[in-house]
């Protein structure tokens, strides 16, 4: 399951939000390469292939991180800060989830190096728009070709 095919890391503590996001992506055949973690600490372990993810092939970084900002333990902003501070993870595109585009943390997230944002609930149209703005057509095309 934790093979080299993991392309999207979903960091989301809410099971419902995670399921709804996964469903939105699955509808377009995008969810089969999605891995979900529930908090920031687990996200960092996964990205750096440590702790419970120590066996993961560290060379296989996720192609993109979908990150909720409000997370238990290590918050979303701390995850961005950490990831952006390390090679090679600092190159991974990060899209943050937010409840509202008025969210005060959104600006902070941008300042720390987030690439884009998606207002929840995640619907496919907004998702593909965001992908397009990040120049990640290939991600969509690859998945669509599966």
């Amino acid at each position: 399951m934790l093979g080299s095919e993991v392309e999207i890391l979903l960091v989301e503590d809410s099971d419902e939000d995670a399921e709804l996001t996964a469903r939105a992506l699955r509808k377009r055949n995008l969810a089969n390469k999605l891995h979900r973690v529930e908090d920031g600490a687990e996200a960092l372990d996964f990205i750096y292939a440590r702790g419970v993810y120590a066996n993961r092939a560290s060379a296989d970084s996720p192609k993109m991180i979908l990150l909720d900002l409000k997370l238990p333990k290590v918050g979303g902003l701390d995850v961005i800060r950490d990831v952006r501070g390390h090679n090679p993870s600092k190159a991974i595109p990060i899209v943050v989830f937010t409840s509202s585009k008025e969210d005060q943390d959104l600006q902070t997230a941008y300042d720390l190096g987030a690439n884009s944002y998606i207002v929840k609930p995640v619907d496919f149209d907004q998702f593909s728009e965001t992908m397009a703005s990040l120049g990640m057509y290939w991600l969509l095309m690859n998945q669509a070709a599966d």
Partner: peptide, 9 residues
């Protein structure tokens, strides 16, 4: 919003 989002979803 989170539970509301869940209800709607």
């Amino acid at each position: 919003r989170a539970p509301l989002r869940a209800i709607e979803g």
